[in-house]
Simulated assay, not measured.
Amino acid sequence: MRILHAYKVYLPGVYGGIPSVIAMLTMLPRMGFQTEVLVACDRGMGRKYEFDGVNVEAVSSIGTVMSTPLAPSYPFRFAERARSSDIVVHHAPFPLTDLGVLLMPKDSVLIVHWHAEVIGRPWLMRVLAPFIRNSLKRADKIIVSDRVIVENSPFLKTFEDKCVVVPYGCDDAYWGELNHAEQRAVDNLQRQYPRLVVAVGRLVSYKGYEIFLRAMQNVDTDAVIIGEGPLKADLIRLSEELGVLDRVKFLGVLKSHEVKQYVHAAKALAFPSVTEAEAFGIVQLEAMSAGKPVVNTALATAVPQVARDGKEGLTVPPNQPAAFAEALRRLLDQPDFAARLGRSGKERVRTEFSKTLFLSRMQEIYQEAHHRRRSAQ
């Protein structure tokens, strides 16, 4: 069975939650699936490459505007690739795939993996809304990570009967364990930063790093921010203005084992997202696998349902630096409490958010959708 995953970006060029989910889904070939990925270049000529044994095609793009590649050929290439695929997975949001859905064969199985809402830009949404609704109408199944996403989405309510809740998974064995070299690196980091807080994610507005930096003014801690993005220069400048640049390090994109070392060395994960564009937060699962508590925000998404307030972390209102600082201080100053939350988080990932559980659920959905479509023909 051939599966085509379609989105705007993929590894290793961009580190982020959706590419990481796609990468996990490419492990399904071991269960009898042949998986390929279609994306767009951020700029330049198209190319084909292999990443972790998976064939990836990136179509040509003349640039990127509002986080969307300008790739005129993408919808046509998507439709062409869909014709030779048994299942097509549209990782939304990506408007060019919605345009491609208009051109794809009527008998193709379409799964929409709804990762997040498009927040803001109301004028743009008025233009895109008919195409998004067409994709959802056309879909055999719509995958969401939490029920609350359906309840709060202006698009999904109409198609509630197609929606299936499948929480994301995490390779808890990888994120929870250290080899000898990694343990030595963690020990060194903890000696260097005995009260370390780590944040991981792209440097974009909805991640709330401005709130985190303002909170840092009132927390006796060092912090590392792992990730790249268009706001990096602005955030460094703000750190200097706030007088925290000597305690905050912007490390850029790191390899996964390096991220793991910083997560294990930290006392807590800071996850200060401020809008519903943050739908889940897989990095929360990674930190929980390492036994670390999380400070997250009370968004109307799955975010506060992953690391729950008082159980696996602390949840505060978004856009409130004082509340975020207070939560960080509580975890740093009450190590026994933080350790209890960390143990609970580790167990929660093992039983509810494991990679194995996620893949088995997705396998069932793909097979059922394919069987139902073929039976109806």
Rank of each mutant, 00 (worst) to 15 (best):
D220P: 06
D220A: 10
A92R: 12
Y7G: 04
R247P: 11
Q363A: 08
I87Q: 01
K260Y: 12
I226G: 08
V37L: 11
R372W: 15
S354I: 10
A6N: 01
A129V: 14
A325I: 10
Q367V: 03
P105I: 10
Y174T: 07
H371Q: 13
P29R: 06
T64M: 13
V306C: 12
M216H: 07
A298H: 09
D52W: 15
G208V: 07
A82K: 00
L102H: 14
G243T: 05
V263R: 00
S145R: 06
L102Y: 15
R121I: 11
P29N: 01
T275P: 07
R343E: 13
V253K: 08
K311Q: 15
L28M: 10
A300M: 13
I365N: 07
E80C: 04
A233L: 10
L314W: 03
G208C: 08
N179F: 05
E347F: 07
I365C: 11
D98F: 14
E347C: 07
H257R: 14
F94M: 11
K355W: 04
H5G: 06
V244K: 00
E160H: 10
H257F: 11
T297I: 00
A302F: 03
L25E: 06
M31N: 06
A129E: 13
I111E: 11
V37W: 14
D146Q: 08
T315Y: 07
A82S: 09
A266N: 04
D336S: 12
M66W: 05
R373H: 08
S61Q: 02
A181F: 06
V274I: 14
R184C: 11
P272H: 06
L314N: 05
V101L: 01
E50N: 12
G229F: 15
T315E: 06
A71F: 06
I22F: 12
S289F: 07
A338V: 04
R126H: 12
M104K: 09
V148N: 07
L254F: 12
A287T: 09
V197H: 04
S375M: 10
L178S: 00
P321C: 11
V294Y: 07
H90Y: 14
S354F: 04
K255Q: 14
R2L: 02
L136I: 06
D246A: 12
V283W: 04
S153D: 06
K355V: 01
I132D: 00
V349M: 07
L269C: 01
S67D: 10
H257D: 11
G100K: 03
G342V: 09
A82M: 02
L103C: 08
D222S: 14
I87T: 06
T68A: 07
R138E: 01
E117H: 02
F337G: 02
P154R: 02
H90M: 09
M31H: 15
K106R: 15
P167W: 05
G243W: 03
R372Y: 14
Y174G: 06
E210S: 14
E240Q: 15
K355Y: 05
S84N: 13
N152R: 09
T158A: 13
F280G: 05
M31F: 13
A223C: 12
V65C: 03
Y209E: 05
I211L: 09
R361L: 02
S20P: 00
Q334V: 01
V274E: 00
F250V: 08
G63N: 03
W114R: 02
M216G: 14
